[in-house]
Simulated scan of single mutants.
Amino acid sequence: MTAIDLDGPRTAEPSLGAVLAMLRRGLFGSWFNSLVTLGTVALLALLVPPLLRWLVIDATWSGNAADCRAGDSACWAFISAKIRFILLAFYPAELQWRPVLACALMLGLLAASALPRCWRRELAIAWPAVIIACWLLMAGLPGVIAPVSSNQWGGLPVSLIIWAVCFATALPLAVLLALARRSNMAGLRLLSIAYIELMRGIPMVAILYFAMLILPLALPAGQSMDKILRAIIMVTLFWAAYIAEVVRGGLQAVPDGQREAAATLGLGYWRIMQLIVLPQALRVVIPGLVNQAIGFLLATSLLAVIGIFDLLNAAKASAADPAWLGFYDEAYLFVAVIYFAFGYGGSRYSLWLERRLNRS
Rank of each mutant, 00 (worst) to 15 (best):
residue 15 S to R: 14
residue 19 V to A: 12
residue 21 A to W: 02
residue 21 A to D: 12
residue 30 S to A: 08
residue 40 T to K: 02
residue 45 A to S: 12
residue 46 L to S: 10
residue 47 L to Y: 08
residue 48 V to Q: 05
residue 51 L to K: 04
residue 52 L to W: 13
residue 53 R to V: 12
residue 53 R to Y: 09
residue 56 V to H: 09
residue 60 T to Q: 11
residue 60 T to D: 10
residue 67 D to S: 14
residue 73 S to T: 03
residue 75 C to P: 00
residue 77 A to V: 08
residue 78 F to C: 04
residue 80 S to Y: 06
residue 81 A to P: 00
residue 82 K to I: 02
residue 82 K to D: 02
residue 83 I to V: 15
residue 84 R to A: 12
residue 87 L to I: 04
residue 92 P to T: 03
residue 94 E to D: 13
residue 97 W to G: 15
residue 101 L to I: 10
residue 104 A to H: 06
residue 105 L to N: 09
residue 108 G to F: 00
residue 115 L to D: 13
residue 116 P to E: 09
residue 118 C to G: 01
residue 120 R to A: 08
residue 123 L to S: 10
residue 125 I to V: 15
residue 125 I to T: 09
residue 130 V to N: 01
residue 134 C to L: 02
residue 136 L to S: 11
residue 136 L to P: 08
residue 140 G to W: 06
residue 141 L to Y: 05
residue 145 I to Q: 01
residue 149 S to Y: 11
residue 152 Q to C: 03
residue 155 G to C: 02
residue 158 V to E: 10
residue 166 C to W: 06
residue 166 C to D: 08
residue 166 C to K: 06
residue 167 F to L: 12
residue 168 A to Y: 06
residue 168 A to H: 10
residue 170 A to E: 07
residue 171 L to R: 07
residue 172 P to W: 10
residue 174 A to N: 06
residue 175 V to N: 01
residue 184 N to H: 14
residue 188 L to W: 10
residue 188 L to F: 09
residue 192 S to D: 04
residue 199 M to V: 08
residue 199 M to Q: 12
residue 200 R to L: 00
residue 201 G to E: 05
residue 202 I to E: 06
residue 205 V to S: 08
residue 208 L to F: 13
residue 210 F to E: 07
residue 212 M to D: 11
residue 215 L to H: 01
residue 216 P to G: 07
residue 221 A to S: 14
residue 225 M to S: 04
residue 225 M to E: 01
residue 230 R to A: 14
residue 232 I to A: 11
residue 233 I to D: 00
residue 238 F to G: 07
residue 239 W to R: 11
residue 241 A to V: 02
residue 243 I to K: 00
residue 243 I to V: 15
residue 245 E to L: 02
residue 250 G to M: 07
residue 250 G to S: 08
residue 255 P to Q: 08
residue 258 Q to R: 11
residue 258 Q to F: 14
residue 265 L to W: 06
residue 267 L to R: 09
residue 267 L to M: 15
residue 268 G to R: 07
residue 270 W to H: 14
residue 277 V to F: 00
residue 280 Q to L: 10
residue 282 L to E: 09
residue 289 L to E: 02
residue 291 N to W: 03
residue 291 N to Q: 11
residue 292 Q to L: 12
residue 293 A to Y: 06
residue 294 I to L: 02
residue 296 F to M: 14
residue 298 L to H: 10
residue 298 L to G: 11
residue 303 L to E: 00
residue 304 A to Y: 06
residue 307 G to E: 01
residue 309 F to Q: 14
residue 310 D to R: 02
residue 310 D to G: 09
residue 315 A to G: 15
residue 316 K to Q: 13
residue 335 V to Y: 02
residue 338 I to Y: 04
residue 338 I to E: 09
residue 339 Y to M: 06
residue 344 Y to D: 03
residue 346 G to V: 03
residue 346 G to I: 05
residue 347 S to L: 10
residue 349 Y to W: 13
residue 358 N to R: 14
